[in-house]
Design a binder for these strands. Structure first.
Lengths: 245, 245
DNA sequence: TTCAAAAAATAACAATTATTGAAGTAATGC
DNA sequence: GCATTACTTCAATAATTGTTATTTTTTGAA
């Protein structure tokens, strides 16, 4: 037995079967959440920790002028706010992009998980560090790359992360996955206008790099797309390739 | 007795005098490091944890094309890489901006600090979360604000962080601090060209918002500068205002 | 299946930002 | 003091990105 969380944490290495069973137990009763629902709002005191088991969610912040910046995308296996219990108030919001299955973990449960299981604690620590590394990679992406390469880089990252939990396919050089991001989401994530996102997507299509249709992204030649945007998966720290079960 | 680290962690709250003494002891023998030196290089396995006691440092990543993105600025009291011991390789580099005094802490020391002193552990945890929040704020800044407001926002953040460790002045509405960032650094931090940074600084000067001369920044009216860029210090989580000692 | 709403695609034009080069000034380190 | 580095200013051009508006397609609900 396995689930997205365990598949992900296996990349951190060091988990025993007993640890996996403990994690499975903690994920026992996920709740369904509809698309477009806030899991946490800015200003709230943090309560539960949210774990996405199925579906997609995202972290965002609304500026006074109404602009929205997306600062994280959560895929199955991701904690949305593992860390945040120490802070007094949330400084951002979290919402679902698609219908999700979400595990609500009380702080007490998280403390139990980590205090009683050092290898799990280490794996969760690893996940937190990877989240931070992703944030840095996004900063580099937005700051330094041109628009079409930003989009390409995001797609490469999403593919790698979804592949790590078994939600992407790879076939002779190509790859594919379902993406929840609309063009307006991409725009708010990369700091562009939706129109420009659309233009850049056209470019990627015309360059023969991607096919994007009905929220399904096909990467025609993964190596070529990665070269195009200078994607280096090192920051995802997936070096411990687990056996596929 | 106090130092920048203690002044900073006092904002997390909860430290006892004994904790402060323990922290002071850990900072006992800082090493001087010249300006422009790498403390850690991308690709290295992480070794020591670095704590800046005096001076400024920054985290950066160089892209294949040679572009540099600065992903963090460290001021006195900041850990550069508290967290990173778990990962196999550094995915970025860290270097000094000015001559610094740096405490090199072995992983063992960090483990001792946290394992034996729960309130210190909590404070370090808090510092890690704030670092992440700053990263998100930078993403929002670069993604959503126009160039001059990005610079203003960065200045507001630096002022707040330096004020938290007693390195900024505030006088009847205004404020001032020494900044280590050259215009090329600002450019690599915000994803602009140096020429454009220069232009935007002129705008801020002409708007009567700042005076920047010889690496000293004077904010003429802090409230006005904050309003100009929509700065809200909440993400720095400095709510526990300690007594100044 | 049909309809209404949302999202995506497209186009023309405007605004912002980057690039390059050059020249001069100021600050800094040795 | 001298050499070096950083900053300032100007200009002309190019590239990128934003704005607005319209059409088409997709999506989701009735």
């Amino acid at each position: 037995m396995s689930n997205a969380l365990i598949r992900k944490l296996d990349h951190a290495g060091g988990l025993t079967d007993a640890d996996r069973a403990t994690l499975l137990g903690a994920c026992a009763s996920p709740r369904p959440v509809a698309a477009g629902q806030d899991l946490t709002c800015e200003g709230d005191p943090p309560e539960n920790v949210h774990l996405i088991l199925r579906g997609f969610a995202y972290r965002y912040k609304i500026l006074p002028g109404g602009k929205r910046q997306i600062t994280a995308v959560f895929v199955p296996g991701d904690f949305c706010d593992l860390h945040v219990a120490i802070l007094q108030r949330m400084d951002h919001s979290i919402a679902t992009l698609l219908p999700c299955e979400v595990v609500y973990l009380s702080r007490a449960t998280v403390v139990d998980l980590t205090a009683g299981h050092p290898r799990i604690a280490r794996a969760l620590w690893w996940a937190t560090l990877v989240d931070e590394a992703i944030l840095r990679a996004w900063l580099v992406n937005i700051g330094q790359r041109e628009a079409s390469r930003q989009i390409a880089h995001l797609f490469c990252e999403l593919h790698a992360r979804l592949d790590a939990v078994g939600l992407a396919t790879r076939d002779n050089g190509g790859a594919a996955f379902d993406t929840p991001l609309r063009q307006t989401d991409l725009a708010d994530l990369l700091g562009m206008t939706p129109v420009h996102v659309n233009r850049m997507l056209q470019e990627l299509r015309e360059a023969g790099l991607i096919v994007l249709k009905r929220r399904r992204l096909q990467i025609l030649d993964l190596a070529r797309l990665r070269a195009f945007c200078g994607f280096d998966a090192a920051y995802l720290h997936l070096e411990n390739r687990p056996d596929r079960r």
